[in-house]
């Protein structure tokens, strides 16, 4: 008897989504209070030279004189309308601002994660296969070196060397040099949209802008992923099924990639979930360094100007991203391992 598969998975997903919504509402409350508790005042930071009467009047207009709970209720109401409050800095609704900035961050983050993963997994696998031998030790040193370099420093150094000195990279002024106009919107990724609309020069120019920030963001992913890959592969390579696969004369590639890597995949994917959160957080620094018009820089600007709604919303957005990633990670377990799929646990 084959167990019915779809309903349990579906109910699991629904349960998880429901839990996530509760968690996110909680996070919104915490984020909003944190923004409120910031020791600076949005009116003072914007208009430092006004009189106390004027200040009180402006606070009243912005609704800042209301109790925290009322302000939060207003904010939440705006959240459910899809507006997410209003930014004092841009004058737009935060939803509008973010819609424009999310693709920029996503393009950076997706390529960064792809690059980092593409480096980390082979690196970790190679170290596991060569465990205890010189290659392993060299790779560990490389890994520690990568891990020790802070993103803001690496970003500045890369700009100095690769752009300023060598002139290999274009001016770090955001997603696209002002010489080009952005391609029509399909995916929001300038590189893909450029290709899809046949504007290959725009795609190439956007790609060139991406190189340095993607490199900085991607390197941040390498270290934790490579470390867990090495550890998990080291363990799975010692499993009986790997030895038996070899004993059956299967090709080493089949044994290592087919069985050992799959056996190592669950901890790797779990770490991947954490790493995505790190990348979203790291984007704030990289976007600031490279003048990237994404949500990271938007959040940093909002924080420095005590712009509450954008700050809360950015926190909420990153938290949703992390929650979604973790849901996908949990669901992937069942795809990876039939024992979990059949409810035997592991």
């Amino acid at each position: 008897m084959r167990p019915m598969r779809i309903p349990p998975v579906l109910s699991y997903v629904l349960r998880r989504v429901a839990i996530s919504i509760v968690v996110l509402i909680g996070i919104s409350a915490v984020a909003f209070s944190m923004a409120y508790l910031l020791p600076s005042d949005p009116v003072t930071s914007r208009y430092p030279d006004i009189s106390n009467e004027q200040r009180a009047e402006m606070r009243r207009q912005m609704g800042l004189d209301q109790p925290l709970i009322v302000q939060y209720a207003r904010y939440m109401e705006s959240v459910f309308r899809g507006e997410f409050g209003r930014s004092l800095g841009t004058g737009n609704s935060v939803g509008e601002d973010l819609a424009r900035r999310i693709p920029a961050t996503l393009e950076l983050a997706v390529y960064g994660i792809l690059l980092g993963t593409a480096l980390a997994i082979p690196l970790g696998m190679f170290a596991a296969i060569r465990r205890g031998r010189p290659t392993d030790h060299v790779l560990r040193l490389v890994n520690i070196a990568i891990q020790s370099v802070p993103a803001f420093w690496l970003g500045v150094v890369l700009i100095f060397v690769v752009f300023y000195q060598l002139r290999w990279a274009p001016t770090p002024v955001g997603r696209l040099s002002p010489l080009y106009s952005p391609p029509p919107f399909f995916t929001g990724f300038y590189t893909l949209d450029g290709l899809l609309s046949g504007k290959f020069d725009v795609a190439l120019a956007a790609g060139r802008q991406l190189i340095l920030p993607v490199l900085v963001l991607g390197l941040g992913v390498v270290s934790p992923l490579a470390r867990i890959t090495r550890a998990a592969m080291g363990e799975s390579l010692g499993e009986d099924y790997v030895t038996f696969g070899r004993a059956l004369g299967l090709r080493e590639r089949q044994v290592v990639l087919g069985d050992a890597f799959r056996g190592a995949l669950i901890p790797i994917v779990t770490t991947f979930g954490f790493v995505v959160g790190n990348v979203l957080a790291g984007a704030a620094i990289v976007e600031t360094v490279f003048s990237w018009p994404g949500i990271g820089r938007y959040a940093v600007t909002a924080i420095t100007t005590s712009d509450m709604a954008p700050v809360s919303t950015c926190i909420l957005l990153v938290a949703s991203g992390v929650a979604l990633t973790n849901l996908l990670v949990d669901l992937s377990y069942a795809l990876i391992d039939p024992r979990i799929r059949h409810g035997y646990g592991k």
Binding site: F244, G245, R262, D337, R339
Partner: peptide, 8 residues
């Protein structure tokens, strides 16, 4: 034998 067969 159970451990020798690939679980996947």
């Amino acid at each position: 034998a159970k451990g020798a067969l690939s679980p996947f």
